[in-house]
Simulated scan of single mutants.
Amino acid sequence: MLEQQVTQEPRRLPDDSRIYLTYTGLETDLIFNRGIDLPEFASFPLLEHADGRALLAAAFQDQIAVARAGGCGCILESTTWVANRDRAAPLGYGADQLAEVNRRSMAFLAEQRDAAGYDPILLSANVGPRADAFSPEVTMTADEARAYHAEQIGWLAETEVDFIAGYTLANVPEAIGLAQAATDHHLSVAISFTVEVDGRLPSGTPFPEALAETDATTGGAVAYYMINCAHPDHIARAFGDADAHWSPRLQGLVVNASRCSHAELDEATELDAGDPPELGRAVAALTRAHTQLKVIGGCCGTDMRHLREIVRNLSPD
């Protein structure tokens, strides 16, 4: 395993006194609530036609409006979670097309930021795992992950990106390699692990161990860590010793609406949207218990109802 050569001070959000609202539930909202077909769970092809761009623009502006109403910062996530070589291959996208897709996605986010006239809005380049996040038997070494993710991150580095966000990561070596690839391109990077109902990564690694190993190997180069694609009940089981030295490094939660396991969600033919008010209360309870949490949002099964309830419950008023 190739370790990062330079130890860096952990980087922070520009204003760490406020909550930043993010959203990675777009695909399930489009598929189940709006009847939009997204082969391979890819939303980036929507950028290729006017109707698709209008759908995406409306979704981003809705998120910005929720953040504005709650006095939150806003993080816009690009449509590039599966815009890497392996995940996009079944859709017929080669390297040249993917390079353009990644650049176009970030340019589209910049347009949404500029149109909103609201500050602060950060542009997150969303990078997903090489394979299915919930198939932990598909693994790479950290060096292999560094080389693999360097291609997509290199394309994204040519844009107005504020930082790279590695989402729904299921094992430590891929997280390390992805973080190293981002820092190789002089970009800030956030790392988000997913956890199962027991609070462990799909690989079986306890979350605190995953964070600590990634931090040690990358020399603290990760700006902050998150957990995504899990219900607050499952996330609460991931914390372990909340007073441990790693806990300030966990600064984000991006939650599922459903309490179902990932296996159950994969088999579902209908959306489990859970209970938006209950979800808002559960997220707020976690942020009160763990005051370092600054990036909050919705993942699978959530929509603007859930984001509004989360923001409402986070408000001191």
Rank of each mutant, 00 (worst) to 15 (best):
L47H: 06
R237S: 02
P39H: 15
E278R: 14
L271V: 05
C72F: 09
D29N: 05
A179M: 08
D62N: 14
E137W: 03
L201N: 03
E270H: 13
A110D: 11
G274Q: 15
I310E: 07
D317T: 15
A285Q: 13
D198T: 10
I121R: 04
E48S: 08
R200F: 00
P202W: 12
I121T: 08
A99N: 02
H245A: 12
G52Q: 04
R200C: 09
I64A: 05
G298W: 14
H290C: 04
V82A: 06
M140S: 12
S188R: 15
L211K: 06
I64P: 07
A284F: 06
E270T: 15
A110I: 01
M226W: 01
P14Q: 10
P129W: 11
A289K: 15
L286D: 01
A142C: 05
A170M: 02
D243M: 00
Y20V: 14
P14L: 14
Q152N: 08
E48H: 03
A145H: 04
R237N: 04
Q4F: 03
D215M: 02
D132G: 09
A50H: 07
E270M: 08
G128F: 07
P206M: 04
A150W: 03
A133M: 09
A65V: 00
D114N: 07
D317W: 09
L91K: 06
V222R: 05
Y93K: 05
V138D: 11
A88N: 04
L109C: 07
A125P: 08
T80W: 02
